[in-house]
Design a protein around this nucleic acid. Structure first.
Lengths: 192, 192
DNA sequence: CGTCACATTGATGCCTCTCAAAGCTTGTGG
DNA sequence: CCACAAGCTTTGAGAGGCATCAATGTGACG
């Protein structure tokens, strides 16, 4: 029953520590303010971490696809700072705080790999921070495509890079006109 | 000669592993593309991590004050992704990659504390990501003040939050008018 | 084949950037 | 002690760009 793949370093955690959770589209694993239980691994499907602001607008702060873990930063936090929402029917597995913390204490290879993950997430966030300070919509859109951020729909991308979807469509059209991008399909673009 | 304070967990690294570096204002410890030597701790003064974009515009991705460490994410990277620049005459100490990696392997408490630092940095970046997606200049400025981001000048803050300094000054004036902020001095504001 | 979400383009108004100028604060050197 | 320079602070005016509203096209899926 547990013939799915858990990525390193979490494969080092014993199977009995794993609890599988089924999710429908739009269902949440946890919400902003909930007590932290641990981190999660996507067995199937994909999820988004979303921060909600009072004004009603929200930001996607992380996307996790199949085989990826999310909410690592919750390990040392008492409550989640964002919502985790399934963007399609998905299966996730909970890796409880205790089991992960125990693994850190008993297995330095585990700790090292986990730290590597955290480090690369930090660098990812820094790149995105840089992206968001580009004021010109066309240039920001181009940078996002270059950074391989267009994995879902353009609606989704526009939310991630802080532009209206109309602005992104117009930017894409302009970039194609400038021959800096080529359209490879409905809502698909590649750098030339 | 080594009666300065190194914050946890790096105090666990033996003193002989430490090399002190003196910096003048504007001097850099490392630059984007340099090979990584390790991470650093600020003994005195303050530094900024800056990412430079081709268009010439740059983003401050981290500020490190006295007693803080920076470039932790470089541990598992072969080269630095940004410049580290002193914003005043400063002293920093290098904690070499090897000594830190060794500490991780031999001391789980060290690993745990370091991971905690990385986790809180991730959450900080997420918060800042959220901030940058606030489109209204006044609201973004208010959020920045609430987040205690006004430590230097307003010119500096405006660069960090991706607004022109004029827009920030106008926002601050508006917020004072709205009685959501009070001016506590030249370039100093507090939430009411 | 109808519905729904995404994709695309047009028109309008507001908001921020940019350029400009003047007051303010601090430090430096004569 | 004063004058000057340099950088921060503040306000004004104009232009351009993005958000917003609106409408239509398009592909996917039941």
């Amino acid at each position: 029953m547990s013939h799915f793949i858990i990525p390193s370093p979490f494969d080092l955690i014993a199977a009995p520590e794993r609890r599988i959770i089924d999710l429908e589209l739009g269902e949440t694993v946890f919400r902003q303010g909930d007590e932290t239980k641990g981190l999660y691994c996507v067995i199937e499907g994909s999820l988004e971490l979303i921060r909600n602001h009072q004004n009603g607008h929200s930001v996607v702060i992380y996307k996790a696809g199949q085989g990826e873990t999310f909410a690592e930063a919750s390990l040392y936090s008492d409550f989640y700072h964002c919502d985790a929402r399934a963007t399609e029917p998905s299966k996730v597995v909970l890796l409880s705080k205790n089991s992960v913390l125990a693994a850190i204490r008993t297995d330095y290879a585990f700790a090292e790999k986990l730290m590597k993950r955290l480090g690369s997430q930090i660098q990812g966030y820094r790149r995105r921070l840089e992206l968001l300070t580009i004021n010109d919509a066309t240039e920001r859109t181009f940078a996002a495509i270059t950074d391989q951020m267009l994995t879902g729909s353009i609606m989704q991308l526009s939310r991630e890079i802080g532009l209206s979807h109309e602005a992104v469509y117009r930017s894409l059209a302009e970039l194609v006109r400038q021959k800096r991008l080529v359209k490879t399909g409905r809502g698909r673009y590649d750098v030339t």
